[in-house]
């Protein structure tokens, strides 16, 4: 009977926390109680910016790594953050998970860092809520003060937005006081942070997602476990996308419905406008290719494989529906 330390920088509530708890329960169930987790929330052991070293050094045996904090070291995983057309949480997670599991090159790179990939999360599709402004087209972004993060934030800046730095938790006050016009976010975040009180429009970009965050393990610890225990961890990790996909889909749909009910204008960005954004994001795809290229990986090949995986799971979804709907 082994108890492993799990380090998570976020709180014990919300969709990611639900997914972590689900993962821990699955591990316990599959291993028949042989393996369990002692989860440390809120960065009690290490913050997001130190998660990679924290897990590699064994401060925690496992934990969540968010790739955007390690654009160099976690470059390969960062493929799931790219502003390519990839808006469906479940599809994105399945594609990322399969890519991470099937690539020997990525696994070797992680092993060199004393890490093992276990499973993946996502924050779901990136959208944008605004107060006193409405984004109906890409041209509308110009001149807006936007709280944006990651490659998506940079892409907004390229469209003429003025990027304002503040945490997602300060966005409510920022929107309320007019310090920012718009904030990048995810649908389920809106009710959690009460944005519906301060925004008057919400544009569904249907563009991409921040998907490069997931469960990793200390390789020494992983190697010291029995084959059965290792299998339990891997299988539990494999099950995350179905469960988190279900949670996010329910929460996101409910959030958008709630916004409509509250009279907030919900806009679906037209196809040709979205295409402009995807093209605008290509700068960041190129710089990503350069980064992985510098590490001896073929960015183009990875991207081709990733896109084909996105297509594969999109087809599966269209043909059979989501797993929780089957």
């Amino acid at each position: 009977q082994t108890t492993l330390f799990f380090g998570e920088a976020g709180p014990n509530r919300g969709s990611r926390a639900d997914a972590i708890n689900y993962f821990a329960d699955q591990v316990e169930e599959i291993s028949e109680g042989d393996l369990s987790f002692d989860i440390q929330w809120g960065g009690a052991l290490f913050k997001a910016g130190a998660a990679r070293q924290g897990i590699a050094d064994g401060v925690a045996d496992a934990g969540t790594i968010i790739a955007v904090y390690f654009p160099q070291e976690m470059a390969a995983y960062g493929i799931a953050d790219l502003p390519i057309q990839n808006p469906d949480p479940w599809v994105g997670m399945k594609a990322t998970d399969e890519l991470m599991r099937s690539s020997d090159q990525i696994q070797q790179n992680l092993a060199d860092q004393n890490l093992v990939y276990i499973g993946t999360f996502t924050t779901s599709a990136v959208h944008i809520g605004c107060k006193g402004a409405t984004i109906n087209s890409v041209d509308d972004i110009e001149g807006l003060k936007v709280r944006g993060v990651g490659a998506y934030g940079n892409a907004f800046a390229d469209q003429g937005a003025n990027l304002v730095s503040m945490s997602i938790y300060d966005a409510y006050q920022g929107l309320d006081s007019g310090l920012i016009d718009c904030s990048q976010g995810y649908s389920y975040v809106v009710p959690a942070l009460q944005w519906q009180e301060v925004i008057d429009s919400y544009t569904l970009l249907n563009w991409g997602q921040v998907g490069a965050l997931g469960v990793f393990m200390n390789k020494d610890m992983f190697d010291s476990l029995s084959a059965d225990q290792q299998d339990a961890l891997m299988e539990a990790g494999r099950r995350i996308p179905d469960e988190l996909g279900r949670i996010l889909s329910t929460d996101n749909d409910a959030a958008v419905q709630m916004m409509r009910d509250q009279g907030i204008e919900v806009i679906e960005l037209p196809e040709e406008e979205r295409q402009k954004l995807v093209e605008a994001g290509s700068t960041y795809v190129d710089s990503w290719k350069e980064t992985v290229g510098g590490m001896g990986m073929d960015g183009d090949a990875m991207l081709t494989e990733y896109r084909s995986l996105i297509d594969k799971y999109t087809e599966e979804r269209d043909a059979q529906g989501y797993p929780w709907e089957r």
Partner: peptide, 13 residues
């Protein structure tokens, strides 16, 4: 290794 890592990262961060 874990001890020094824990001490460093909590200080630095």
């Amino acid at each position: 290794r874990p001890t020094s890592s824990l001490v460093f990262s909590n200080f630095f961060d």
